[in-house]
Structures are given as C-alpha cells and as structure tokens.
Amino acid sequence: ILEEAISVVMSGKMSVSKAQSIYGIPHSTLEYKVKERLGTLK
C-alpha cells in the first residue's frame, strides 16, 4: 500500500494530502518517502 501511494504521488496523479486520506498513511511518512525517492531529503 505504501509503495502504491508513493508511486501515485510521484507520478503527480495525487497530492500527498489526498493520498494520505485514501491510503490511510500518515502525511509525514508519505512526504518523507517521496522526498527520499526524489533525492531531496535533507
């Protein structure tokens, strides 16, 4: 489920907030994982 949510957000089909409510994943977790994948994590 997490992988799917990350893919959807990264493809631009859904915002982090929308994915959070649909997949039930905490906003901070989703945002962290997306940034980690994009290489923008500081």
Score class of each variant (00 low, 15 high):
residue 1 I to K: 15
residue 1 I to H: 04
residue 1 I to V: 13
residue 2 L to G: 06
residue 2 L to Q: 06
residue 2 L to Y: 08
residue 3 E to K: 08
residue 3 E to A: 03
residue 3 E to W: 02
residue 3 E to R: 02
residue 4 E to Q: 06
residue 4 E to M: 03
residue 5 A to C: 00
residue 5 A to W: 00
residue 5 A to K: 05
residue 6 I to N: 05
residue 6 I to L: 11
residue 6 I to T: 06
residue 7 S to M: 08
residue 7 S to A: 12
residue 7 S to L: 09
residue 7 S to F: 04
residue 7 S to H: 06
residue 8 V to W: 06
residue 8 V to A: 15
residue 9 V to A: 00
residue 9 V to I: 13
residue 10 M to P: 00
residue 10 M to V: 14
residue 10 M to F: 00
residue 10 M to I: 10
residue 11 S to M: 10
residue 11 S to D: 14
residue 11 S to A: 12
residue 11 S to E: 13
residue 12 G to E: 06
residue 12 G to S: 02
residue 12 G to Y: 05
residue 13 K to M: 05
residue 13 K to D: 09
residue 13 K to Y: 06
residue 13 K to I: 05
residue 14 M to R: 02
residue 14 M to K: 05
residue 14 M to E: 06
residue 14 M to H: 03
residue 16 V to Y: 11
residue 16 V to I: 12
residue 16 V to A: 12
residue 16 V to R: 03
residue 16 V to D: 04
residue 17 S to T: 12
residue 17 S to N: 11
residue 17 S to P: 07
residue 18 K to T: 12
residue 18 K to P: 01
residue 18 K to G: 07
residue 18 K to E: 15
residue 18 K to Y: 04
residue 19 A to I: 00
residue 19 A to R: 01
residue 19 A to F: 00
residue 20 Q to V: 12
residue 20 Q to E: 15
residue 20 Q to P: 01
residue 21 S to D: 13
residue 21 S to W: 04
residue 22 I to C: 09
residue 23 Y to P: 05
residue 23 Y to C: 02
residue 23 Y to F: 10
residue 24 G to E: 07
residue 24 G to A: 06
residue 24 G to H: 08
residue 24 G to P: 04
residue 25 I to Q: 04
residue 25 I to C: 04
residue 25 I to L: 08
residue 25 I to D: 02
residue 26 P to Q: 08
residue 26 P to V: 00
residue 26 P to A: 09
residue 26 P to M: 01
residue 26 P to K: 10
residue 27 H to I: 14
residue 27 H to W: 07
residue 28 S to I: 10
residue 28 S to W: 06
residue 28 S to D: 13
residue 28 S to H: 11
residue 29 T to I: 15
residue 29 T to F: 05
residue 29 T to Y: 09
residue 29 T to S: 10
residue 30 L to G: 03
residue 31 E to H: 05
residue 31 E to L: 08
residue 31 E to K: 06
residue 31 E to Q: 07
residue 32 Y to Q: 15
residue 32 Y to V: 13
residue 32 Y to R: 15
residue 33 K to M: 09
residue 33 K to N: 14
residue 33 K to Y: 15
residue 34 V to Q: 05
residue 34 V to T: 06
residue 35 K to V: 05
residue 35 K to Q: 14
residue 35 K to T: 09
residue 36 E to Y: 02
residue 37 R to G: 07
residue 37 R to Q: 08
residue 37 R to E: 09
residue 38 L to Q: 14
residue 38 L to N: 11
residue 38 L to C: 11
residue 39 G to I: 07
residue 39 G to H: 09
residue 40 T to H: 13
residue 40 T to G: 13
residue 40 T to A: 15
residue 40 T to E: 15
residue 40 T to L: 11
residue 41 L to D: 14
residue 41 L to N: 09
residue 41 L to F: 11
residue 41 L to I: 11
residue 41 L to K: 13
residue 42 K to S: 14
residue 42 K to V: 14
